[in-house]
């Protein structure tokens, strides 16, 4: 066991990790941030996606120790400061982009990264960008709509800021 520390959702935290402790285990068990889920053991489903140092990664496929000193954002860090839903989260609710909610945190985190890199994606780019996220409930239709509507909202906000 070693003590590792990182910034999670803007807060400095530390906890115990073995060499083989995965980031997702550290988040769920050590930090009790259970919004990040585990849906597979082959690094394919994306229920576990978080951001490490600003990039989306599968937290089931990164060791906690590798994030020592780094900065991590999880679904718990995506709401606005006043507790209301962030733009992408709100788009998911508006467009009915979730059903059972299990894949949802990973979807939101993947889309956040996608829109950062490509603020105006086409439908095909959105679908391609979600290649690492499996949803069994929605058929993706409304997830794609949520991504589109979030992109539009963010573009509007960016324009307004100019």
């Amino acid at each position: 066991m070693a003590t590792i520390s990182m910034t999670v959702n803007g807060k400095q935290v530390s906890g115990e990790a073995q060499g083989n402790t995965l980031l997702v285990e550290f988040l769920r068990q050590e930090l009790k941030l259970t919004g990040t889920h585990v849906g597979c053991d082959t690094s394919q489903c994306g229920a576990c996606v978080v951001h490490v140092n600003g990039e989306s990664v599968k937290s089931c496929s990164v060791f906690a120790s590798a994030c020592d000193g780094g900065s991590v954002t999880t679904i718990e860090g995506m709401a606005n400061d006043d507790g209301t839903l962030g733009v992408i989260q709100q788009a998911f609710q508006n467009e009915h982009g979730l059903q059972c909610g299990f894949c949802t945190p990973g979807m939101v985190m993947s889309i956040a990264d996608m829109l950062k890199n490509n603020p105006q994606p086409t439908e095909a780019e959105i679908r391609e960008g979600l290649k690492g996220n499996i949803c069994r409930c929605t058929g993706y239709h409304n997830i794609v709509k949520a991504a589109q509507s979030a992109a539009a909202t963010l573009a509007g906000a960016a324009q307004a800021a100019e």
């Binding site: 989306s56 990664v57 599968k58 979600l130």
Partner: peptide, 9 residues
């Protein structure tokens, strides 16, 4: 290759 998350690592 894979997906964006795999490509990031």
């Amino acid at each position: 290759i894979g997906d964006p998350q795999v490509r990031n690592r």
